[in-house]
Amino acid sequence: MNAHVNADAPPGTAAWAPGRTDAGAAVRRPRPGLWILTAVVVVIAARMAYGVITNPTVEWAVVGRYLTFPTVLHGLAMTLELTVLAMVLGTAGGVVLALLRMSRTPVLRVPADAYVWFFRGTPVLVQLILWYNLSIFIPKISIAVPFGPELASWQTNDLITPFVASLLGLALSEAAYMCEIVRGGLLSVPRGQSEAAQTLGLSRTRIFSHIVLPQAMRSIVPPTGNQVINMLKGTSLVSVIAMSDLLYSVQAVYNQNYKTIPLLVVACIWYLAVTSVLYLGQTWVERRFGRGHRP
């Protein structure tokens, strides 16, 4: 060992001589391979960005003109509305389904299991098309007394509009995914904490709302943020049933002026802008729920 003690060192300072070999004196070695890899990545990214910016088919003047075009903004508003409503309904349904799946009563658990199995096992696009064409399968929706008279009825086409079909397809599918996220978060809380709270005489409602749920939120929030972002992008699927979301509105414009690439760039810019805002919001919420629990 080449370390030497410095007897003249003042109190409170390190007593090791300059030749010490402790971990604190370790010198980071240069890593030329990392610098080379970084340079290659930067060059490739710059080349790709330059190719996109200078590509004449993009027509940035057209992009700037249609970025705030009324039809495009209307489609953006519809996309945001569908995202918010579908996530609210899907999250509420997911919480209910998670509690049912955690129940020990088969009559409650089995239907919830079947729901999650079906809606997670079929593509959202197929569900949207099925809801939109529901009138072929069920021409009339009615409310009646079981084995008795009919109280009220409506034509399915009058009830299942493109907006309703879009909302049903997105929200019902999202509920199945949120169910697993919520259930996983609740199961991540040690059962011993609930048992300890029960010995103190707390009700099951207070245990859930004051002990289990706050801890589970640290596991629920991050994947929920990802689901919101995925939902925003997933709303583009409703364009296949003639729902005037952002993508459908952009398609309607370029079908008239044949500026396909510039209008698709407009859609990408808006999607990236909104998802960036959602990502910042997700980061803030994660930090808020993670206060005091970081290693």
Results as ranks from 00 to 15, higher is better:
M178S: 07
M178N: 10
C179M: 11
C179Y: 01
I181C: 04
I181K: 01
I181N: 02
V182W: 01
R183M: 10
R183T: 05
G185W: 03
L186S: 04
L187D: 10
L187M: 15
S188R: 07
S188A: 15
S188F: 07
P190Y: 06
P190E: 10
P190R: 10
R191F: 01
G192I: 10
G192P: 06
G192D: 12
Q193I: 09
Q193N: 09
S194H: 04
E195K: 11
A196I: 07
A197N: 05
A197H: 05
A197L: 06
T199E: 06
L200M: 15
L200Q: 15
L200H: 12
G201Q: 13
G201K: 12
L202I: 09
S203Y: 09
S203H: 10
R204D: 14
R206E: 13
R206H: 13
I207D: 03
F208T: 07
F208C: 11
S209V: 11
S209I: 10
H210I: 03
H210K: 14
I211L: 12
V212M: 11
L213G: 05
L213D: 05
Q215T: 03
Q215L: 11
A216K: 01
M217T: 11
M217K: 09
R218G: 01
R218L: 03
S219R: 11
S219Y: 11
I220R: 02
I220W: 02
V221F: 07
P222G: 08
P223S: 07
P223D: 04
G225A: 09
G225E: 05
N226I: 08
V228E: 00
V228Y: 07
V228P: 01
V228W: 14
I229V: 14
I229K: 06
M231K: 02
M231E: 03
L232Y: 04
L232C: 02
K233M: 12
G234M: 06
S236R: 06
S236A: 15
S236F: 07
L237K: 00
V238N: 00
S239I: 00
V240Y: 05
V240W: 02
A242I: 04
M243K: 05
S244V: 08
S244R: 08
D245G: 10
D245S: 07
L246S: 04
L246C: 08
L247Y: 07
L247P: 01
L247W: 02
Y248I: 00
S249M: 06
S249A: 15
V250D: 02
V250H: 00
Q251E: 11
V253D: 00
V253E: 01
V253Q: 03
Y254P: 00
Y254F: 15
N255P: 02
Q256P: 01
N257A: 08
Y258F: 15
K259A: 15
T260I: 15
I261L: 15
L263W: 02
L263I: 08
L263A: 04
L263Y: 02
L263M: 14
L264I: 14
V265N: 00
V265Q: 01
V266P: 00
V266E: 03
A267T: 08
A267S: 13
I269F: 13
W270N: 04
W270I: 08
Y271P: 03
Y271H: 08
L272V: 13
V274N: 04
T275M: 06
T275C: 14
L278G: 03
L278K: 06
Y279E: 14
Y279H: 12
L280G: 12
L280S: 11
Q282H: 09
V285K: 00
V285C: 06
E286A: 10
E286M: 10
E286F: 10
